[in-house]
């Protein structure tokens, strides 16, 4: 099954919606996307994985590269709605801290709203 990458970036928050499978064959598709983010890093990168059915170590490397990129630029990296299989693999390799994983879109939106209010009051 191929990988479909949907992107949305408002300059502050970038959302990557991955659909399909992220494995040895499809992981190279993410390289230019990661390079693009590195050129203009957002404040928040949301990786939406509701429709990602499968991830292997090749895909995990991409996830760690995005996590590193955001850390280097002082941004936040969060994961939204990972499927059970992807969540299991993430847990094995400790890909993302528990507090950075959101189980629903509503939970994520509440987090992003809270962040924006904090920035607005600074």
């Amino acid at each position: 099954m191929p990988l479909i990458i949907e992107q949305d970036n408002d300059g502050t928050t970038a959302r990557l919606n991955l659909v399909g499978e992220l494995d040895t064959d499809t992981a190279p598709q993410l390289r230019p996307v990661i390079e693009g983010l590195a050129g203009q890093p957002p404040s928040v990168l949301v990786l939406r994985l509701k429709d990602l059915d499968y991830i292997s170590s090749a895909g995990l490397r991409c996830v760690f590269q995005m996590k590193k990129l955001m850390k280097e630029h002082g941004g936040r990296f969060v994961v939204s709605e990972p499927s059970p299989q992807v969540r299991k693999v993430f847990d094995i390799v400790k890909a993302v801290p528990v507090q950075s994983v959101f189980s629903s879109e509503a939970e994520l939106d509440a987090y992003l709203d809270k962040m924006q209010r904090q920035v607005g009051s600074d």
Partner: peptide, 11 residues
């Protein structure tokens, strides 16, 4: 280090 790989055996 995980950006470079090395997770296959762990899995």
């Amino acid at each position: 280090e995980r950006c470079e790989g090395g997770m296959g055996i762990l899995l």
